[in-house]
Amino acid sequence: MISLRHIYKYYDSKFQRTFVLKDIDLEISEGEFVTIMGPSGAGKSTLLNIVGMLDEPSEGEYYFLDQPVHKINEKKKVEFHRNYVGFIFQAFHLIDELTVYENIETPLVYKGMKVSLRKSVVADMLDRFNMVAKKDLFPAQLSGGQQQLVAIARAIAGKPKLLLADEPTGNLHSDQGKQIMELLKNLNNEGITIIQVTHNEEFAKYGKRIIRLADGMTSSDKTT
């Protein structure tokens, strides 16, 4: 599903070029659960953002579902976001002005889903995440764990093929973290491809494949 070839990412400042990613080659097939690990500043988030088409590589080729991402236009990328990719971030990133219900609904709106169908999908999500009672609350009225649950519900509501999670448990207690990881595991079992970034060795093990980055390069790539 994902194929990265000779991916470089660098930033040019006045006199020097700083490399964040150096010659990354990566193949990820559908249904995988990949964990990316590595020290701070290794380029994990950068890699994830490139995969998620939020950032562009400085050099190299990237094929997503056999389409050359490095050649496609912005509009096509929006298409991909709409239909294939879901995001979960460390800082939850919910829209403060929308309720739980409305936050989950947002990607479906952009997908152009019909109102009746949207209702049933959101109701389904709320039910699944045990949030029915909280559907009319605003993010500020939820705990951190609950916020992250909503963020996940929203990310998968549109039935993406690929779920990208950048330190989804970073701000949470380990109990809550565990709950989230269980959820991701279940989603993966349902067929969603997942790539997560984490610093937590225990949570890393939820992944079926662990890639370690160091200084912008893959230092190891193991399938457990």
Partner: peptide, 13 residues
Amino acid sequence: KEIGIRKTNGAGA
């Protein structure tokens, strides 16, 4: 922030 989220949720420019 809201706009960033909307974009990751599939909103185009």
